[in-house]
Design a protein around this nucleic acid. Structure first.
Lengths: 156, 156
DNA sequence: GTACATGCAAACCTTTTGCACAGGG
DNA sequence: CCCTGTGCAAAAGGTTTGCATGTAC
């Protein structure tokens, strides 16, 4: 989604600025953040972020995208995701939820859906107790067939 | 672990042979299977399988390793795992457990531990009901600090 | 002004592919 | 014997890096 009022974007960027600490807020970094904000529902690859960023600043380089995404990950502004398709994907951290949501990867249409439930907490508690493993974060992907594909599939 | 009696290996290979269906059981494929069987606790990368395979057959090519691993995945003999370190890793499917175990990735020593618990079933049930998503498989990774590293860490 | 950031191109690393040859069923 | 599998080397991604130039603070 594009921002109806430029103000809204500026406000959000201002908020990131604080998280940047001593790191410089450059036009390129702003452009990457804007691209991510305008596609906060997607799981963009570096190449996709690059394409979006180029629409705003045609001079921007791919290396800058990678370096910026690395920085954003380090600053906990984005999460790097691995769906096993040979490229990393990135999504803005949703500050509201202290934890990730989960991903449902459709084996048929490759659509990636999201779930919010966090029953995983129970499992984490068991693991922390039984293995003494201190869990910081988790990545969960479910593979299967989405409602539509599952229907189509059973007809064949 | 090496096999104390060659018989044991031969037996296991024979069992895979059935799963191979019309695919040919070549010496190279046997070597890859042997390497995987002798390291069933590890999560080997293609390069690592290659190194192990070369010890048995120094003529084997890396492309063959990749092609064999692809085949083994297709035949549900191995699982391809993505830990986000830029390379795929493979592990033998444990036929005994209908489902995967989970992986604990230590952020400090990069050790990969495993858990067997499957409380995830509850979560899957909720997801199947609420999203109509038909789950076939899942990949779960927990990131955090293993018991040793966690101890060390709190001392610093 | 200075340390950090950028763009470009080359390098890198993992994985894939084309092709001529080899060998399993 | 035929079709599939193999080895090699080249190509193909995705990502990183070196370096000269540019710029946020």
């Amino acid at each position: 989604m594009k921002f109806k009022r430029g103000d809204e974007l500026k406000q959000k960027l201002e908020r990131f600025r604080e998280q940047f600490k001593e790191h410089k807020m450059t036009p390129q970094r702003r452009v990457v953040l804007q691209a991510l904000l305008e596609n906060s529902e997607s799981h963009l690859s570096a190449e996709e972020v690059y394409a979006l960023a180029k629409e705003i600043d045609s001079e921007i380089g791919l290396a800058t995208i990678y370096r910026t995404l690395d920085l954003l990950e380090e600053l906990n502004i984005v999460h790097k995701l691995h769906f096993g398709d040979g490229r990393s994907r990135y999504e803005l951290c949703h500050v509201s939820s202290e934890h990730h949501h989960h991903h449902l990867v459709c084996l048929n249409c490759n659509q990636i859906l999201e779930v919010k439930e966090d029953l995983l907490h129970q499992l984490e508690t068991v693991i922390e107790k039984e293995h003494g493993f201190h869990i910081i974060d988790h990545r969960v992907q479910f593979y299967g067939y989405c409602a539509q594909c599952d229907k189509t599939k059973s007809n064949t």
